[in-house]
Amino acid sequence: MKIFKESIIIVILSSLFGLISGTLLSSNEALLTTIPILLLIIPALNSLIGDISTVLVSRLTTHLYIGTLSPKIQKSKRLKEDFFGLLITLILSLIALLLIGYIVGITIGIKIVNPFLIIFIITLTILLIFIIMFAALFFSAIFLYKRGRDPNNFLIPFLTSLADFLTPLFLILFIIIFI
């Protein structure tokens, strides 16, 4: 009963976020049919940005609790190491994702449209979301920590849903702008 009570609201709320993301995809069905590689890699893109952000929140929270990061909005060596460490992981993972995605896409006979432009749009989307998430999660973690809350408990449940929402949003937005 305790598990149920503590989880029900957040689980329903994050599923609603998922439905908003679904609405975005559904409203742009023609785009998904025209560029089918998007549908192939969208689950992996959502998962990638969600995973990296979860690692970031866990690390920020640990640093705040053990005092290796002071609860102030300021640059620090620790923060830079985390930022570049996660950015390199994100870039390497994105390269692997695009390589695997396109190889699988070609193998299973998916129509490949404007590959270089699509890769540029995907890269731009993921890097932009990473920068937004990094800044937003850093500020939120400090804000919550200063108020005596555990950032892990508040931020992690929202991350997946936020990533699921932001990734198709920016992807569709940039495709409309560039194509």
Partner: peptide, 28 residues
């Protein structure tokens, strides 16, 4: 260090990518 973060996080991310690409195949 950033190197250690990459070394520990990248392999598990790679496994996750493969699973999600399989999900993408079912979708598309």
């Amino acid at each position: 260090s950033k190197g250690k973060i990459v070394k520990e996080a990248f392999p598990s991310e790679l496994i996750s990518i493969i699973g999600d690409i399989l999900a993408g195949i079912v979708l598309s």
